[in-house]
Simulated assay, not measured.
Amino acid sequence: MCQSCTPGQHCAEPGLSSPSGPCSPGYYCIQGSHTPTPQYYNNTDGESGAHTVEDVYFQIHFIGDVCPAGHYCPIGSARPEPCPPGSFMGQSGGVSETECHPCTPGFYCPDWGQSSAELRCPEGSFCPAGSVTGHQPDRQCPSGHSCPYGSVKPAICSPGTYQPLPSQPSCQPCPPGFYCLEGCTTPLPCPPGTASMIEGLQSQLDCSPCPPGFYCNTSALISPSGLCSAGHFCSSGATESAPVSQMYGDICPAGYYCPEQSSAPLPCPVGYILQDKGATSSNDCSPCPPSRYCIAPGSSQPSGFCAPGHYCIGGADTAAPQATLSQQTCFCDLISSSHLQKYDLCLLKHNITCSVHIPGRIPDMVLNHVYGNR
């Protein structure tokens, strides 16, 4: 009794007692094949009928075909062998599993016999070449990284961003008052002496110093803690309201005064002194004492004694004070006409000092109204 040719073999002639040989590589032969390279004729081009008697036979009796895409067929194959999960093969006629390509990076191939890689890696995961699934536990995006849709590998968070959670598609901007180094999982607070309202700081050097006239006494501030105290001054980066002998501020020095929110000491004007530290107002500045003069602003002691031939009654800003034109005019107005022989001349010429008149007739009480004169 005649039997169908053995699967994986072909029987090319009638009257055979054994198969003619194995099916050719890249093909598969099911039971009853008479050729080592069977090809199923499929009329898909709109033509009617088969081309040959052999085509008609194949249409009636399917005996095998070329190895389909996503599969491979070694010599003597009775059926196609599918490429395993994590791989694919785009062409037909494969002869070995080595022709199955690893799944494309950024994709995953979960099925047997895939002819293409079509599934992109999901958000929060990464898929290197040959991935079988998009949700492998050891391929979840770690904290400090981001894995957007179709990631091949985790992307480390860039400086100025952070990500505290695993399996996330993106990194978050570093919040104000903090800075974030590369791969940051927890923002780092800007130190005391700084206040930063801007997000996305990349290092501690980006933290803004506390502005002059203010102090910042805690970390992670977005605005100053308060105003510098009166009697002290706070330059940039102060950490306390009343600094003493610090790089960022000090108690107000002698000769100067410091109102609240001072960024630098303000000098007492010329003609004044201030001997004590910690002054808070210009009202604390005192006129230069009598017989002395104070020529420099910000003086804590008089500059020296009044020059010979001059006198200084208080508030003098030079060693040789001169009466002003208005003061000279005042002298002429106060002196009685009966005391001067040329009173009319004094009234007409205000630019002439009263000393051109008879000196002995100028009352002392008049001179005391002027801070200094010859």
Results as ranks from 00 to 15, higher is better:
S115W: 14
T194A: 02
S262K: 14
N217A: 08
C109E: 11
R292D: 06
S87R: 15
P173K: 06
C141F: 09
S208K: 10
F331Q: 07
H34Q: 13
P110R: 15
S151P: 07
P166R: 05
R292H: 12
C228L: 05
C29I: 03
S24F: 09
G86E: 08
L119P: 01
P105N: 11
C228P: 04
Y149H: 14
Y27V: 03
C29T: 03
Q202F: 01
P265N: 14
L165Q: 10
R120D: 09
G255M: 12
A155W: 07
P137W: 11
P269C: 02
C11G: 07
C216Y: 03
Y215F: 15
G93A: 11
A320N: 14
S225Q: 02
D111L: 15
P175Y: 01
I30H: 00
Y343C: 12
G278V: 04
Q246K: 15
C171T: 05
N217F: 01
V152R: 15
E54C: 01
C216N: 03
Y256V: 04
V356H: 13
G15W: 14
S235N: 13
A195H: 00
P173Y: 02
C127Y: 07
P169L: 02
Q31M: 08
P14Y: 11
Q204D: 05
Y272I: 01
G64H: 04
I222G: 00
T37I: 05
Y162H: 15
Q136N: 12
I198L: 07
V366Q: 10
L367V: 08
C100H: 05
S143T: 08
T104E: 14
S48V: 10
D111I: 10
Q91W: 12
A316F: 00
T133R: 15
Q328K: 10
S92C: 09
H357L: 14
L348C: 10
L119C: 03
G183P: 04
Y41V: 13
D206C: 03
